[in-house]
Simulated scan of single mutants.
Amino acid sequence: MNDLIRQAINAEAEERVDSRTVLANLHKARKRKPLGLIVGVATLTAAAAAAAVVIPTTIKKTEAAPPAVSATQETQNVLLIGLDDRDLTDALMLARFQADGTAVSVVSLPRDVLVDGQKINSLYAQAPGKLTAAVEKTTGTKVDHYAAVKMSAIGHVSELFGGVAVCLKAPSNDPITKAAFPAGRQVLQGDQALAFLRQRHGLENGDLDRAKRQQAFLVDLASKITKDNALALARAVSGSISVDEGWDLLGFAQRFTGPLAISVTTLPVDAPVERESGFGFEVDTAKARAFVDKALTEGDRSTEAGCVR
């Protein structure tokens, strides 16, 4: 499957292969093999939201005669996961993509949320299904699909755009990694971009502030993705993303025709507590479910990348 998708990308770039033939082969392969690793793009979990946008956009570009979009096409809830080198979750977002392909609403879930006494960031390494089940239990929202991306790929992705613009309310310094950033607007790329997205030590609200950074990074990065650069982006990070086997990416692709309107927010949590698994946030399930339902249904389309901590 990976070889077939890479063939589709090369066909677009070099015009050596009939794209309709490649897509037909992709359809056949999907019937007999798991999807496994696919061509993707890493942004933040970010990585993931842009991934879910760029993958279908790229595949659609290769299609000379796209099939008709189903009139019954529905919204899809996609869990976007940013992983460290141990497969622990550094970033986690629940995104609802609208059926018409024009908008996405995103809710960040802090990595230290406790579910049944365990930190949510440890569950993907145990099994992806454990993580999706925990998210469904906490948010009351069915997860249709997931996309998991290695955070280490983000630095290279930012370089492809000449950097991503962010804004800090005040200077920050990570006492552990020594990563330091001045106050104000700045353009980050490479290792700096990755350090910005992963910093939580030295921030007033720790992981909650890190989630805000990831959102700001995502909003600016998404504004830079176009049909012209999506192909190069996907080729640069081929193999960096994993998705569930049941996701019909070709069908998902058909809804996207242009830039998405993005709404971002963060799941509210209670005060931090100490448990056997360590420090974490407990969540009032009833309040969390009501919050997520409203955020995904009514998302604020005026969301902008303002200054963060």
Results as ranks from 00 to 15, higher is better:
residue 20 R to L: 14
residue 5 I to T: 03
residue 62 T to R: 03
residue 72 T to Q: 15
residue 232 A to R: 04
residue 65 A to L: 04
residue 286 A to C: 00
residue 23 L to N: 12
residue 270 D to N: 06
residue 272 P to Q: 06
residue 18 D to K: 15
residue 253 A to H: 03
residue 30 R to L: 09
residue 144 D to M: 09
residue 39 V to K: 10
residue 288 A to S: 11
residue 56 P to W: 02
residue 211 A to S: 12
residue 102 T to S: 15
residue 300 D to Y: 12
residue 206 G to C: 04
residue 62 T to V: 06
residue 67 P to V: 04
residue 226 T to N: 00
residue 9 I to V: 09
residue 17 V to N: 13
residue 144 D to Y: 05
residue 174 D to W: 02
residue 48 A to S: 14
residue 55 I to E: 06
residue 170 A to I: 00
residue 153 A to Q: 11
residue 207 D to S: 01
residue 232 A to I: 01
residue 64 A to Y: 09
residue 303 T to C: 07
residue 246 G to H: 13
residue 306 G to A: 14
residue 305 A to W: 06
residue 89 T to A: 10
residue 254 Q to F: 05
residue 67 P to I: 04
residue 100 D to M: 15
residue 61 K to W: 03
residue 219 V to E: 10
residue 304 E to L: 07
residue 82 G to R: 07
residue 49 A to D: 05
residue 218 L to C: 08
residue 246 G to M: 05
residue 50 A to N: 06
residue 29 A to D: 07
residue 247 W to S: 13
residue 41 V to M: 07
residue 13 A to H: 07
residue 269 V to T: 06
residue 259 P to M: 01
residue 115 V to Q: 02
residue 47 A to H: 07
residue 76 Q to D: 14
residue 242 S to M: 15
residue 229 N to G: 03
residue 303 T to G: 09
residue 127 A to W: 09
residue 202 G to I: 01
residue 298 E to Q: 11
residue 296 L to E: 14
